[in-house]
Structures are given as C-alpha cells and as structure tokens.
C-alpha cells in the first residue's frame, strides 16, 4: 500500500500540489488531469526523484525516502520522456538498467527476453537505440520499468507515441499487472483508463478533486448528459462537452441539470466527466 499523506510541493512561490492525500492499493490507479495540473510532480515524488515540502509518502507504513533503496527495489518507473546512450543496443541498454536494479546477468538476460517478447520487440534486441521509432522507444521504456518485477509501477503518459494496436496490447498488459501490483498511470487520454482503471484520481487547481471508481464518477453525471443537433444553440445552464458528426450533421453533447425537451439523454462516460470537470481549463 502506497500512501500519500498531506503532501505539498512548491517551486519557489508556485504551489504545484497542495495538501494531497491518496491511498494506492493493488490495482490500476489513473491520474487524470490536463497538462500542468501537477500529475508529473506527484509522480516524481512517488518515485523519490523529488521530495515534498510538506507531508510524507509511505510504502507499507514506512517513509519511502527512509526506505531508500528498499523502496526503489520494488519500484518501476516510466518517465514521460527518457534519455539513453544512442550507440547502445536495446539489450545493452536494458542490461545496464537491470544491473542498476541489482539483477545478475543471467537473470537479467532471461527477464529481458521475456519482456521484449511481451512488448513485441524480440526482433529489435540488437538494434541500436538511435534507430528505434517513438513507439518502439516507448515499448523499451515499458520493458525497463518491469525489469525488476516491481510491486509499484508508475507510468507517466505511457501510451504517448503508441499506435492503436500497441495501445490495446499495453492496456491488456496493465490490466493483468494491476491484478497483483499497484499500478499508477498518469494520462490525459481518457480511453486508456476507462476500461482498466480500478480508481480514477482527478487533480484540479493543484489539489486532489476526487479518487473514485469509473462507475462512481460516471454516476454523478447519469441522467444529465444529452445530445442535440448543433443547429440549436445551447440554452442557459447547459454546459457544452463536445461535438460529433453523425448522419444528420453536427451534434452537440452537453450537461444539463434539467431535462431539455429538444434533446435526447445519453449515458455518461468518463470523457464526459473529464470534459465537465476540466472544460474551462482545456478550452
């Protein structure tokens, strides 16, 4: 169990996160927020790359900064972007990181073979890192995060650069990992988390807004999401979410707390919640 307790992080006078409290158990936890909300800052603190100004982060009731290498021993992390030495091959790169994670060479080679197969890069093991495409690099990043069979897996925008097929494969992998491990992923791609996240954490104005299941979040908008042709302007009190094209033309999707006579109700999804909560910030 990973516990964030009253954590605040400031950069000079700017408060990136304020008094955040979250508990991460086994399962997939999705941090959903627009850019700049403080997701990456929280991730960096969860990975010990950065210390909070106030509060503490506990792993099984012990401070992660005091646990030091014992915590990092059970940690896997994929940053938003990562550097590498361009001239080395994928296997050399992974072997180096495996050594830093304390794995012996034989064990590391076996693990690398297994992970490269899982991420569909078995044939690329001897390719130089500089020859890899963005999607392949991201898959190498995912493989390195899993090298030490981590109990806590933290992934910052893991599906960036992946094509739809890779994203589905990755979602399945995460879903499987989430059965036995604590998986925390930050993203602003709602579809990535809708099907696999056991809990969704929303951060707004640098504070924790909510930490609930997808169903709980969506239920808050149930009966309040409607669609109507875009030819009709939004009425007072209606909050625009998105628009889509159908056979009859453009259709507006919006939230209304009363039932409009000229609109049809639709089921609320996580994207509706996201757009409703962050609508102003995104626009």
């Amino acid at each position: 169990m990973l516990t964030v307790k009253n954590v605040t992080k400031k950069y000079g006078s700017f408060t990136a996160l304020e008094d955040v409290n979250i508990e991460f158990g086994i399962g997939v936890h999705a941090l959903l927020a627009p850019n700049g909300a403080g997701k990456t800052t929280l991730m960096k603190m969860l990975t010990t790359l950065m210390k909070p100004n106030a509060g503490e982060i506990l792993y099984n009731d012990e401070n992660i900064f005091l646990l030091d290498d014992k915590y990092r021993d059970v940690l896997g992390y994929l940053p938003q972007s990562f550097g590498f030495y361009k001239g080395h091959t994928v296997r050399q790169f992974l072997l180096y990181l495996a050594a830093l994670k304390g794995l012996g060479k034989k064990q590391a080679n076996e693990k690398i073979d297994e992970l490269l197969a899982n991420v569909g890069l078995s044939d690329a093991a001897s390719l130089r890192m500089k020859k890899l495409s963005g999607g392949m690099l991201q898959r190498v990043g995912i493989a390195q995060a899993l090298l030490n069979d981590p109990q806590v897996l933290i992934l910052d925008e893991p599906t960036a650069g992946l094509d739809p097929k890779e994203r589905v494969r990755f979602r399945n992998m995460l879903s499987e990992l989430g059965k036995t491990k604590t998986v925390i992923l930050s993203t602003h791609i709602v579809s990535d988390v809708e099907s696999i996240a056991s809990r969704v954490i929303l951060i707004k104005n640098h504070k924790l807004l909510c930490n609930e299941t997808v169903q709980q979040l969506c239920s808050q908008l149930n009966g309040k999401v409607f669609e109507r042709t875009a030819a009709v302007a939004l009425h007072d009190g209606e909050v625009f979410l998105s628009e889509r094209q159908d056979a009859n033309g453009l259709v507006n999707r919006f939230v209304s707390h009363s039932v409009p006579a000229d609109a049809s109700p639709v089921n609320a999804g996580l994207e509706d919640v996201f757009l409703y909560v962050y609508g102003e910030e995104i626009q």
Binding site: T47, D69, R72, L75, Y77, G83
Partner: peptide, 18 residues
C-alpha cells in the same frame, strides 16, 4: 546531456552510488 539520470535515479543503485 544523455538524460539518463531520471531512469538511473529510480534504480536500486543510484547515480551517486555509481
């Protein structure tokens, strides 16, 4: 310049150890 420190910093043996 390589940008490897972020990855190394979360490993059991950190850049300080190395």
């Amino acid at each position: 310049k390589s940008g490897m420190l972020t990855l190394q910093g979360v490993c059991k043996y950190t850049p300080v150890h190395v």
